[in-house]
């Protein structure tokens, strides 16, 4: 494990680095694209939007799955995660199963839908695995009890809300771009409103709950909101990721789904996605382990 000061390793609050620094950046992006893609497929399937579903499937399979594989030290051995009994206890193994089942069922559904065939059973199964794909990353991190910032039941919920919200936003962008905003736009907008409110409420609840769990939790939260990462949190996560999307929601409420300029809508969607990505970065970057031995920190 890399560290700035080797003599401080596990003597002071030690940040995790393997899942965010150097090659770990790939994992951060992989989780984002996997959850965004699966969330997008889930939302778009509710409106039978083939384009948005296909884009979601692509994001999940190619960017999410590809980056996940590239992150592994031995990517050609990934199949071992499926043939071992690891799924009984390991969230990474379970996650691979969820992603593979989602991608296979989703692809079959997309092909059939392209030919005008709609199977309720198939889409229900694909969506169930899409949902599990969105949530498994949260459970994988929640399992790590050495990092209080991750070891909270709110993290899987946050993953679901942000994954579906991001998915709904991109779906809205595709729908608006294709000129179909007047038909399905209001319904997608409803989803965006609910998920955005959920995201905005969850972030402070999540940070406050972690803040009071332990001293390591306090250190993590402090480093997010008031230390060197404060700019990223307040400007990118809060202003860009929350306030701009709220402005877009208020705009559509006032002017209707077609009344908002496409440029502003796309800017708000992009800002929301960047805010979500930044929040995920902070959760990975600011996760710290407690010192193992008595220390003056």
């Amino acid at each position: 494990m890399i560290q700035a000061k080797p003599y401080e390793f596990m003597v002071t609050y030690t940040p995790q680095r393997e899942w965010i620094e150097k090659g770990g950046i790939k994992l951060w992006l992989a989780f984002f694209f996997i959850e965004l893609g699966a969330g997008m497929f889930f939302i778009a399937s509710l409106f039978d939007n083939l384009t948005a579903m296909s884009v979601g499937w692509f994001l999940c399979a190619v960017l999410g799955g590809g980056l996940h594989l590239l992150y592994l030290g031995k990517p050609l051995r990934f199949w071992r995660m499926m043939i071992s009994s690891g799924w009984k206890t390991s969230w990474i193994s379970r996650g691979l199963f969820f992603v593979v089942f989602f991608l296979v069922l989703g692809l079959v559904h997309l092909v059939l839908l392209g030919q005008g065939i709609r199977s309720i059973g198939l889409i229900a199964a694909a969506n169930a695995f899409a949902f599990l794909t969105v949530i498994y990353g949260g459970f994988a991190m929640n399992y790590v009890n050495g990092i209080p910032l991750w070891n909270t039941a709110l993290l899987p919920i946050l993953c679901v809300v942000s994954g579906l919200w991001g998915g709904a936003e991109v779906t809205m962008g595709i729908v608006a771009g294709s000129g179909a905003a007047s038909t399905v736009g209001p319904a997608i907008e409803e989803w965006i409103r609910i998920l955005l409110v959920g995201f905005i409420l969850l972030i402070p609840v999540y940070l406050l709950s972690v803040r009071y769990t332990s001293s390591a939790g306090q250190v993590s939260v402090r480093s997010i909101v008031s230390s060197k990462w404060a700019f990223l949190f307040w400007v990118v996560v809060v202003v860009a990721g929350m306030i701009l999307p709220i402005a877009a929601v208020i705009g559509t409420l006032a002017a209707g789904p077609t009344g908002l300029s496409l440029t502003f809508l796309y800017a708000a969607i992009l800002a929301g996605l960047v805010g979500d990505l930044a929040m995920r970065y902070l959760v990975l970057k600011c996760g710290v382990y407690s010192p193992l031995i008595p220390s003056g920190t």
Binding site: R77, M81, V144, G146, I147, Y289
Partner: peptide, 13 residues
């Protein structure tokens, strides 16, 4: 496979 999940999960690092 080098996923390093064990490394994350170990509270003793």
């Amino acid at each position: 496979v080098g996923c390093r999940y064990c490394l994350m999960a170990c509270p003793y690092q």
